[in-house]
Design a protein around this nucleic acid. Structure first.
Lengths: 97, 97
DNA sequence: ACTCATTGTAAACTGTAACGTTACACGTGT
DNA sequence: ACACGTGTAACGTTACAGTTTACAATGAGT
């Protein structure tokens, strides 16, 4: 896995949702029902997208929670790949003739 | 979202990987490089699939970590859906003529 | 009947992470 | 000077995956 770091969902949310709608962090946080700190950290890539937050965003923007979760998952897996090795033994697949 | 509860990835791992290969929990845990307890709780749906565990499984079974993570994500989102409401205000989309 | 492997799980602990509240310092614009 | 919006530090809470250790139950083999 040598692909480059996937985009953080918070960045996408900031650039593609908040900015076009001219929403401040304070306003958006209130509408989402979370603290200003929680949203600020999210859009500044200091926190991951939680399932809770994904649901709130999907409701507020009428998008699918899955699409937001997928962005986070790609990033989470990418990060996990960075800290190999893992000392894993390959399972003994039976040889079927 | 009224779909039924998605299958836990641990159950799939147990039924479709461990059982066909006649692997015990103890053996599989050792090969994955995790504690017996960690794997036991996973296959008994007491713990979620962590990104770490997904990578270990993907290495041991030569499958994609994404596919395992996707199972967990569906389950995670399904669980999050169960505890609504969320008091979220829909964003003010500008009316473009 | 006894032994051994396997199992699930409790207990105690650690590390991490999201979230809340509160408070501060900074910048911008009126 | 003041009001806003901002990022973020400092606290505390809650949740959860992971570890090691230990125990009781089960099942298979001798």
């Amino acid at each position: 896995m040598i692909k480059r770091k996937p985009t953080h969902p918070g960045t996408v949310f900031l650039e593609d949702v908040m900015k076009p709608l001219h929403l401040t962090v304070t306003e958006a946080a209130d509408m989402l029902g979370v603290s200003r700190k929680a949203l600020s950290e999210f859009v500044n890539e200091k926190a991951s997208l939680s399932p809770e937050m994904a649901l709130r965003i999907s409701k507020a923007t009428n998008t699918s929670a899955e699409s937001w979760m997928n962005m986070q998952q790609k990033l989470t897996l990418w990060k996990a790949y960075q800290k190999e090795p893992k000392n894993v033994t390959v399972f003994p697949f039976e040889v079927v003739i």
